[in-house]
Nucleic acid binder design. Structure first.
Lengths: 196, 196
DNA sequence: GCCGTAAGTCAACAATTGATGACTTTTAAA
DNA sequence: TTTAAAAGTCATCAATTGTTGACTTACGGC
């Protein structure tokens, strides 16, 4: 806490502010999408001038691509045995707080999918960093087809929670939904077993 | 085809142009979302001046709400026995052309969910015209919870096809995916039967 | 045929957007 | 301490947004 009359100011460092902009952009993009998030808002959150965004990243497009690259952590999603995967992802989709960074890439994708400017970056990112690792983890013959099904449920839950974070359910309802999501995920991975 | 020197012009009618604006707006909103679709674009598609949008509907917000109200045809989605429902919806989600009006409400919802301006209208619409009829059709005890699961898969497929209409699959892959979606839908509705 | 009114057009508005170049401040090496 | 480059700020640009008011055109009852 500085004495009265003094102000706290961050030490000037290109790397630090670059990271601050990236973090603020990740937050804004995941909440408001590519179109909705303004460069001034992002810069404001990062505590820097809006001009620095264009300076450091070349433009909003490149910033968006950089955020996608940053928030791409598929190894945090696709691993483990089917049972463990189903339980973990179900908890992530239903229970986890919305601002959890793990789901950010999904949120960013779906919130920006309708923007023509972001579409190119989105498509490339999805294929390389979402479906790709998913298919590799699945490993089975129809992995590509199956990945669309899995991805749809994950993105769909993302949309649903984006619209209303508590899913318009009480605690018991969310608990029940988490069980259902877990069962369905497992059913997708093991098509020959009952869901119940 | 009019002779050279003559132009075709629509007969002046408030009702007709109102409908034309609504149709153009439905199309644009479902493709570009609330923020992405401009009033000038919509008016251009409808073949009228942009000023008429504000004139007839009061503003972009009200136009959006009117489009939601227009494209709300839940009775075209939620009916039939589980087997028939699963087959029909699977075809709709995987096979149908993207510009089919039946899925427009889903597309509009997900493409505009991130816009604060449209969020209020979206939430109200979803509850009243999507989850409501779905829960009523389901009829079972945990219908509300189940509706979130069903809705998530439907919206997720919508997002997926919004990003790449052909799902990045060949014809055989789409056929296989449609079977999988059908099986999963049925599994959601009948949790005690195997998926295979 | 005339004319009031509804329907449509046009120009312009204020606000916001992303981006740029000139300028000032800080930093760290010499 | 000096100084040159890096880092940050500011004012401003051009484009686009939704919206409004004044104007012009076309329709239908008299």
């Amino acid at each position: 806490m500085p004495a009265p009359g003094f102000i706290v100011t961050r030490r000037r460092s290109a790397e630090t502010t670059r990271a601050a902009i990236l973090e603020a952009a990740r937050c804004r993009f995941s909440r408001e999408g590519y179109e909705g998030a303004g460069v001034r808002d992002i810069a404001g959150d990062a505590g820097v001038d809006a001009a620095l965004v264009s300076r450091y990243f070349g433009g909003k497009d490149e910033l968006f691509a950089a955020v996608l690259e940053l928030s791409a952590k598929p190894d945090e999603l696709f691993y483990g045995a089917p049972e463990e995967f189903a339980a973990r992802i179900a908890a992530l989709l239903v229970r986890d707080p919305q601002d959890d960074a793990k789901m950010d890439c999904v949120l960013i994708m779906l919130r920006s999918a309708s923007s023509p400017k972001a579409a190119a970056a989105i498509r490339q990112f999805i294929e390389a960093r979402f479906y790709g690792p998913m298919v590799e983890w699945l490993g089975c013959a129809d992995a590509t087809v199956l990945s669309r099904l899995l991805g749809a449920l994950m993105m769909g839950m993302g949309v649903t929670r984006a619209i209303s974070p508590d899913l318009d359910l009480d605690a018991a309802g969310r608990e029940a939904l988490e069980r259902k999501v877990e069962a369905i995920l497992l059913a997708m991975l093991r098509p020959n077993q009952p869901v119940g």
